[in-house]
């Protein structure tokens, strides 16, 4: 029978493994979420990849670089930067419930 490792031989250094939502569902930090008006959104309107300021300036990386751009509201902290930086004023901050 192989020797079973003792607890002190298993618990060594404090090591982390990557997870999504390390701080929990951080979308709950704010009720206000960006909502994109696809009639104003430049890539949505033109159907061509470009602009994507909302993707570019999001500190959380929760906006997709897709047409139309999608926002992962589970982890959007509602800072409002994307609304500020949208050159087409296509984003409004609205109360959105996280399911």
């Amino acid at each position: 029978m192989p020797n079973k490792k003792k607890d002190y031989q298993i618990i060594l250094a404090s090591i982390q493994k990557p997870v999504i939502g390390e701080a929990g569902i951080t979308g709950t930090w704010s009720k206000l979420k960006p909502v994109i008006n696809s009639e104003k959104c430049i890539p949505s309107k033109s159907g061509k990849p470009g602009c994507f300021n909302c993707w570019l300036f999001c500190p959380e990386g929760v906006v997709s670089r897709t047409i139309p751009p999608k926002i992962n509201i589970e982890y959007c902290k509602g800072c409002g930067i994307c609304k500020e930086e949208c050159p087409a004023s296509a984003i409004s901050m609205e109360e959105v419930e996280i399911e």
């Binding site: 607890d7 404090s14 997870v19």
Partner: peptide, 18 residues
């Protein structure tokens, strides 16, 4: 859900036992 991580106390216990 991804697992359970020891606290500081467990690490220091482990060092003492080692």
């Amino acid at each position: 859900t991804e697992g359970t991580a020891p606290g500081y106390y467990e690490f220091r216990y482990s060092l003492q036992k080692a």
